[in-house]
């Protein structure tokens, strides 16, 4: 449990498109600024417990009936890839792309008086 709001840093420390791992108590948390909206995820990959949020943020490839089975680039800036074995996660939902039934928890984030607060 992490009931209290914790200050992750100043807003200007998280420009659009950036992310950073911060420490709150014993917890490592990745804080992401996706197009001005903030998200926070645990820095632990459910696969082999890799440091998930130290991975790269990018988009992903999609191909389905709607794309006529052609590969298209999708959700640029919204996909986090684990630096260990590259499992992809949707930053906005915590959902794992390879195994949609796997969803990592998301922390709450808000901006108050120029501070990024996580709980």
């Amino acid at each position: 449990m992490m009931p209290d709001e914790n200050v992750a840093g100043n807003v200007e420390d998280f420009p659009v498109g950036s992310h950073k791992v911060i420490k709150i108590g014993k917890r490592e948390i990745g804080v992401f600024n996706v197009d001005g909206a903030f998200y926070a995820l645990p820095n632990i990959c459910p696969h082999q417990v890799g440091p998930l949020c130290q991975g790269k943020v990018s988009g992903t490839l999609v191909a389905n009936k709607d794309t006529n089975w052609k590969r298209t680039w999708d959700r640029e800036g919204e996909i986090l890839a684990c630096p260990w074995h590259r499992l992809e996660f949707n930053i906005k939902t915590g959902e794992c792309l390879a195994y949609p039934e796997v969803k990592i928890r998301s922390y709450n984030v808000k901006i108050e008086e120029g501070k990024v607060k996580v709980w």
Binding site: H47, L61, N64, H85, R86, L87, E88, A98
Partner: peptide, 15 residues
């Protein structure tokens, strides 16, 4: 292999 390379085969809806 799917863990690391899922996006190579994005049309798969399951492992």
């Amino acid at each position: 292999e799917y863990v690391e390379n899922r996006r190579d085969i994005p049309f798969l809806e399951h492992p």
